[in-house]
Every structure is written in structure tokens, then in C-alpha cells.
Amino acid sequence: MLSSFTLGQYYNTTSVIHRLDPRFKLLQLIFIIAFIFVCKNFFALFLMCALVLIAMLLSKVPFRMYLRNLKVILPIVVFTAILNMLYVNQGEVVLFSWWIITVTLDGVLKAAFMVIRILLLILISAVLTYTTTPTELTDAIESLLKPLKFLGLGELVHTLAMMMTISLRFIPTLTDETDKIISAQKARGADLESGNILSKIKALLPILIPLLFSAIRRADDLADAMDCRCYSGGKGRTRMKKLVPGAKDYITTTILIVVFAAVIVVGKVF
């Protein structure tokens, strides 16, 4: 069912990572991802592994939650692994050979390297999404893009942030609604499974049209409700929660810089 799909997978608990300024978290994530790709060898990658593991531990999010994330991308991981193993044919140590398929030690190592990278990528992104509400993320993006105000784009930034907030707010509502409409049309004998592509697209109309009308109706209602609450764009608007960076944010940033330096050094030395 669609409703089991959740967007923004915030895990409600209190941890150091939860309490970091979302702007710092977002920038830190971007740099960590960059450095996962910078890693030249297993030693450097090991450092990044340790970093990600510590972040996961500090987040106080249960490990099974992270595993759930990995399960979703398992097919991609397996696919990458196989592709790398088959593609890299150099190296003397041949582990396995059959017909045109040759698997070398280098290939396996290369595959392992890629798989670890992907896993790290997913895990560190999950740390961010588990510890940061979608709203915090939106606020962070709005705040980070604030310098654009000087280019006369302030209202645009606010509008984009507001659009993101509203989308996040209404995605669960609309997925729920889609479920209901699908059931209702099935109860009228709608056949959504069989037939060729053309008839399948045609079969979607009884779902898409009511969904579209519903979205328009909701947008109308929401516009009224926002008007009633004196909304007039970003101008003159204040925020309840001001993002103020604290000691935690600077300390974590410093630690990251040290790790990044180490990654570069380890990459060069070994």
C-alpha cells in the first residue's frame, strides 16, 4: 500500500546530532559525501567508515532503522557489486572463471570499495533525515540561501521554502487519498493490472482525475486558511525558531575538518 511509504523519516528522540543546527548538519553532510568520494584507498575509506559509525551511534537511532534503509537499496548495491566484479578484469589473481566470465581479486576489491561507498552514502544521509525534521531542513535551506536576498531574490527563496513545506505537509494526505480512490474505483470494477501499456494509462485516468480535482480543492481551501492567518509572503514575517549555532556545531565542524585532513593524508601516504 502507498500509505506505508513515508517521506521524511524523522526519528523522534534527543541526541547531540538531533540538536545540531540544521544548517551545519546540511553543510557537514555535503562535505562528508564529497569526502566519501575523495577516498582513494581502503585506509581512507576506513576513516570515513568510523566517522559514519560514530555519527550513527551518537544519533541514538536504533540500528534496525538504518538497516531498513539499506534493505531498500539492496538491489542497487548487488547490481553495482556484480557490475564492478565483471567489469574489472585486470589483476593476476583469478578467483573464478567460467565461459566469458572472469572474476579477479582486483575486481572483488573494487566491488567491495564501491559497495562500502554506497552504503556510507546511504547511512550518512539517513543520519541527517532521521535526526532532522523536514521543516528544519526547509528552514536550513531557506537560511543558507539568504545571501541571495542581495540579488533581489529574497521573496523567491521564501516562496520556494514555503512550497517545500506545503509539499511535505500534503504528500501524506495525498498518498492516503490515492489509496482511497484506488479502492473506490476497484469497487466499481476498475481493472488496474491487466492490459497493454496504452490501456494501463487509460485505466489510470479514473484515479488521476479525481486526485487532481482533490488537490485543486485542497489548494483552494489552504489558500483561504493562509489568508485568514494574515499570510502575505516573506516580507515582514518573523520566525518562532531562530537558528542559532552553538558550541556543538563548531566542535563537530572542527572534528570533521581533522578527519577530512586525515583522509587526504592517508590517501597520499599509502
Binding site: E177, K180, I181, S183, A184, Q185, A187, R188, L205, P206, I209, P210, F213, S214
Partner: peptide, 12 residues
Amino acid sequence: GLVFQYPEYQLF
């Protein structure tokens, strides 16, 4: 025949 809640929202 099953009539869902607010069935008018399935008209298309």
C-alpha cells in the same frame, strides 16, 4: 457494491 465515504470524490 461498496460505496466509500465521500464517494463524490471518485467522480472523474
